[in-house]
Design a protein around this nucleic acid. Structure first.
Lengths: 259, 259
DNA sequence: AACTTCTAACGAACACTGTTCGCTACGAAC
DNA sequence: GTTCGTAGCGAACAGTGTTCGTTAGAAGTT
């Protein structure tokens, strides 16, 4: 077995090491961190849905079975990736304004971060995130809510509603970024301006709304120009939604829920 | 071709018709409606994720390839199923109270209906539903919002936010019903009371929250009894969330969105 | 230094998945 | 009576997540 002529440090994965196993030049050992970090990078490269156990294993220069030493499931893996993505979200401090400004900053930062990692936010739909970073942000959120005068017994519900909003918005943002990349790759970078984007994105929806007869769908018909021109995903839309939710908190504080 | 000896109506699929193709006893012809209806039934039987093209084809006594005559995608199929599920949601009339009562009724009916068909609401996360029933409900929603005095230019955004809420809540309801069925099947029907359910569902989450040190997560620590006892998914929680959103609409009406 | 034990790593395989290709045979048209 | 378009579908493709049983190298023990 002297076939191993590559001992001089072969980092090139194209070298066909078809020798017996274990003749590789001592690659970095696997670990949960390494697996999860590589998975997050892969999410950014190929997209959430395209991260398969095989592809991830290949990126780590190993076989798919090896991943199951550190992770029981694809779901569990993605839960870890989700939490890792949240790690870069910094909680606002006193310099960032009053409780409401800080809460809005925290929420928007989370949306931006999650949305930049494709559909990783999908993880939060199926299971309640319980990773260290998710808990850190939950702590920060509820602390700010209390500072805003939201009743103690409503804080968990309020945090839950905010979380729902964050997840949905992150998915929306991810979809927009994906469309943007696709459009830029196809029609050249010039076509991917914000305005052209929202126009292209809304065009097929507008066609649907436009095809509705005015007698059966009068309200949609009347509001169609608004539904189109405003654009589904403008910045104002996002800010308004968050305002609505927080205003709703405020008008419900110091009072119990109905019933 | 006299092999067709089954003309007497063989509905039993266990009969091994290993004869040449086309000797079957003239089963009901396929159609988009038949495919989508069968798919919805299958969702109720085996769950959203377990509805595969093969299983659906088998339920229709055909091969998977035949489905692609009526549907281009699994996604498109599920979009149709989603809209079919919405078909049973009746829009409230004048007898149901003022605009707010009607809106709440509409929203809650939609959540109940969607939630009773496992995770079919997942469809609405990836794509904006544009089926006839989704449009019917959108029309009803926006009409009620306008009746409530929500500005025209905010109506689409408000409807969007409500839709987000409906989808999330339907998924939550579906998850609860699934857990309930699983628990009833395992520990006997007696164990599946509402109270025991929420206790079991919250127990693992409570363990997570309980394990957090009070110095790093003071707010979670302080609010833990509330987070547990209130239960993540009580009826009051759902009503409160909807109240928050609608109150938010009201405090933002007759005013433009910020900026 | 030699031997045993333990376990991370992994090659290969299993039971699936969505989807496509190209043939078949029926119903309708000519 | 023959042709022909097309719905239907068997078989296969290229993947998927996951598991099993073996193996190689490190750690522990004589």
């Amino acid at each position: 077995m002297f076939v191993n002529g590559y001992s001089g440090g072969v980092t090139d994965s194209t070298a066909r090491t078809r020798d017996t196993p274990r003749t590789r030049p001592a690659k970095a050992p696997l670990s949960l961190d390494a697996v999860v970090t590589a998975a997050l990078e892969l999410v950014d490269e190929v997209g959430y849905g395209a991260v398969t156990m095989r592809r991830l294993a290949q990126a780590l220069d190993t076989g798919p079975a090896s991943l199951y030493v550190y992770v029981t499931d694809r779901d569990e893996l993605m839960a870890h990736v989700h939490d890792l993505a949240l790690a870069t979200v910094e909680t606002p401090g006193p310099a960032d304004g009053d409780w409401r400004a800080r809460l809005e900053l925290l929420v928007n930062r989370t949306i931006t971060t999650l949305g930049s990692h494709d559909d990783i936010a999908l993880v939060a739909i199926t299971r309640v995130p319980t990773g260290p970073n998710a808990l850190r942000l939950l702590e920060a959120t509820m602390t700010l809510l209390r500072a805003g005068g939201v009743d103690d017994d409503l804080c968990p519900w309020a945090a839950d509603l905010l979380d729902q909003y964050v997840t949905s918005s992150a998915l929306e943002l991810a979809a927009r970024l994906r469309d943007q990349r696709a459009l830029a790759a196809a029609d050249g970078p010039a076509a991917a301006t914000e305005k052209a984007m929202s126009a292209a994105a809304g065009s097929d929806l507008d066609a649907v709304y436009g095809s509705l007869p005015a007698d059966t769908h009068p309200t949609i018909h009347a509001l169609r120009p608004i539904m189109t021109t405003a654009g589904r995903d403008s910045r104002a839309h996002a800010a308004w939604r968050l305002d609505v939710i927080i205003d709703g908190f405020l008008s419900n504080r110091r009072s119990r829920a109905r019933e």
